Simulated scan of single mutants.
Amino acid sequence: MNMEIRYAAHPQDVKSYDTARLRAEFHSGNLMVSGEINLVYTHYDRFIYGGVFPVWEPLSLPNYDALKADYFLERRELGIINVGWKGKVTVDGEEFELQNLDVLYIGKGKKEITFESIDPNSPAKFYLNSSPAHQSFPTVKATKEDANIVDLGTQVAANKRTIYQFIHEDGIQSCQLVMGVTELKAGNIWNTFPPHTHDRRMEVYFYFDLPNDQIVMHFMGQPQETRHLAVKNEEAVISPPWSIHAGAGTSNYKFIWGMAGENKSFSDMDGVPLQDVL
Score class of each variant (00 low, 15 high):
Asp170Arg: 12
Ile167Thr: 04
Thr139Ser: 05
Thr162Pro: 09
Tyr127Pro: 00
Ser130Asp: 01
Lys160Leu: 11
Gln135Gly: 05
Ala142Lys: 14
Val156Asp: 14
Val181His: 08
Gly109Ile: 06
Arg161His: 04
Tyr127Met: 12
Gln135Val: 01
Ser136Thr: 11
Gly180Lys: 02
Gln173His: 07
Asn121Tyr: 12
Thr139Gln: 07
Phe137Met: 14
Phe115Ala: 05
Lys125Gly: 00
Pro195Asn: 08
Leu152Met: 11
Ile189Lys: 10
Ala186Glu: 14
Ile106Asn: 05
Leu184Thr: 01
Leu104Val: 04
Lys185Arg: 03
Val140Ser: 10
Lys160Glu: 08
Asp119Glu: 11
Leu177Trp: 02
Ala124Ile: 09
His134Phe: 08
Gln155Leu: 01
Ala147Glu: 12
Glu112Thr: 12
Tyr164Leu: 10
Gly171Gln: 01
Val156Ala: 15
Ile113Trp: 01
Ala158Cys: 03
Gln165Val: 01
Pro195Ser: 13
Val150Phe: 00
Ser130Met: 00
Glu169Lys: 06
Phe115Ser: 08
Thr162Glu: 08
Pro195Val: 13
Trp190Glu: 09
Leu128Lys: 00
Ala147Asp: 06
Ser131Leu: 11
Ser130Val: 02
Pro123Gln: 06
Leu152Asp: 00
Leu152Lys: 15
Leu152Tyr: 15
Phe166Ile: 03
Phe137Cys: 01
Glu183Asp: 07
Asp119Ser: 08
Ser117Ala: 11
Trp190Met: 08
Asn121Ser: 09
Ser174Pro: 02
Gln155Val: 09
Ser122Glu: 13
Asn191Lys: 04
Gln135Thr: 04
Val140Gln: 15
Tyr127Ile: 07
Met179Lys: 12
Pro120Tyr: 08
Ala157Pro: 01
Ala124Ser: 14
Glu145Arg: 12
Ile149Pro: 07
Met179Ile: 03
Ser174Gln: 14
Pro194Glu: 08
Tyr164Thr: 11
Ala157Phe: 15
Ile106Thr: 05
Phe137Trp: 12
Ser136Tyr: 10
Ile106Val: 15
Ser174Tyr: 00
Gln155Ala: 12
Gly187His: 03
Gln155Trp: 11
Phe166Asn: 12
Ala147Cys: 13
Phe115Ile: 11
Ile163Lys: 15
Phe115Val: 09
Val178Gln: 12
Ala158Leu: 15
Glu145Tyr: 01
Lys185Val: 04
Gln173Tyr: 03
Pro132Ile: 06
Pro120Val: 07
Ile118His: 08
Glu112Phe: 14
Lys111Trp: 04
Gln173Asn: 11
Leu128Ala: 04
Thr154Val: 00
Ile113Ala: 03
Ser130Leu: 03
Ser122Arg: 05
Phe137Gly: 05
Ile118Cys: 05
Leu128Ser: 03
Glu112Ala: 14
Val150Asn: 04
Ile167Met: 11
Asn129Trp: 03
Gln165His: 11
Pro123Gly: 02
Pro132Gln: 01
Leu177Met: 05
Gly109Glu: 07
Pro120Glu: 13
Asp170Met: 09
Phe193Lys: 13
Ala158Ile: 02
Ile149Cys: 10
Lys110Ile: 00
Lys125Leu: 13
Leu184Gly: 02
Ser122Thr: 11
Ser130Cys: 01
Glu169Tyr: 07
Pro132Asp: 13
Ile118Trp: 04
Phe137Pro: 04
Phe126Thr: 01
Lys108Asp: 00
Leu128Gly: 06
Val150Cys: 00
Ser117His: 09
Asn188Phe: 01
Pro138Ile: 14
Tyr164Pro: 15
Val178Trp: 00
Thr143Pro: 05
Ala157Val: 06
Thr143Arg: 15
Ser122Gly: 14
Lys160Asp: 07
